[in-house]
Simulated assay, not measured.
Amino acid sequence: MDGKPEVEMHQVIASPQNDKFVIVRPGARRGIQIPRAMYHELSETVEEGRPIPVWLSDAANQAWDINLSGQPSKGTVLIRPMTRLNYSRATWEINKGCNFNCEHCYLAERKFAGIPRNEKDQLIAMLRDAGVLWLQITGGEPTIDKDFRHSYEEAYRTGMLIEILTNGSRLHQPETIELLRTMPPHKVTVSLYGATAESFDSLTRRPGAFKLLSKGLRAAKESGISLELALIITKHNAHELEAMRAIADEYSTAYAEYANISPTYDGTPEPLAAQAPGFLDKSTVFQGCPAGHTFFHVDPHGFATMCKVGRENPISLMTEGLDGLLRLPAIADAQMLRTGGCSGCLLSGTCRVCRPMAKAFQKAEAPLENYCQHGDGVAT
Rank of each mutant, 00 (worst) to 15 (best):
M1S: 12
P5Q: 10
V12T: 03
S15Q: 07
P16C: 10
P16S: 11
D19C: 01
K20G: 12
V22A: 07
V24N: 10
R25H: 04
R25S: 04
R29V: 14
G31N: 13
I34K: 06
M38C: 10
E48W: 02
I52C: 01
A63N: 07
N67T: 05
G70E: 11
G70K: 09
S73A: 15
T76F: 00
M82W: 14
E93G: 03
N95T: 15
K96R: 14
G97D: 04
C98Q: 08
C98K: 09
N101G: 08
N101S: 14
Y106T: 13
E109G: 01
R110K: 12
R110V: 00
K111C: 02
A113I: 03
G114S: 12
D121R: 15
L135E: 05
T138W: 03
G140Q: 02
G140V: 04
E141D: 13
D147Q: 08
R149C: 02
R149T: 02
S151V: 15
Y152S: 02
E153C: 01
E153H: 02
E153M: 03
A155S: 14
A155H: 11
R157S: 05
T158C: 05
G159N: 02
G159P: 01
G159F: 00
M160L: 11
E163T: 15
E163L: 10
P174C: 05
E175N: 14
T176M: 12
R181K: 15
R181H: 05
R181I: 07
M183G: 00
M183P: 00
H186C: 08
V188S: 08
T189S: 15
Y193G: 03
G194P: 09
A195I: 00
T196Y: 06
F200I: 07
R205V: 00
R205F: 00
F210G: 03
L212V: 06
L217G: 13
E222Y: 04
I225F: 06
E228V: 01
K235E: 01
H239L: 06
M244V: 07
I247A: 10
D249L: 03
Y251C: 08
T253H: 14
Y258F: 15
A259F: 00
N260Q: 00
I261S: 12
S262W: 14
Y265N: 11
Y265I: 08
D266Y: 06
D266N: 15
T268D: 11
L272C: 05
A273D: 06
A273F: 05
G278M: 04
D281S: 13
C289L: 10
C289A: 11
T294R: 13
P300G: 06
F303A: 12
N313V: 04
S316K: 12
L317G: 04
M318I: 15
T319I: 07
L325C: 06
P329G: 08
L347N: 03
S348I: 06
T350F: 13
R352C: 03
M357K: 13
Q362F: 11
Q362R: 13
P367V: 01
L368T: 00
C372F: 05
Q373C: 11
Q373V: 09
A379E: 12
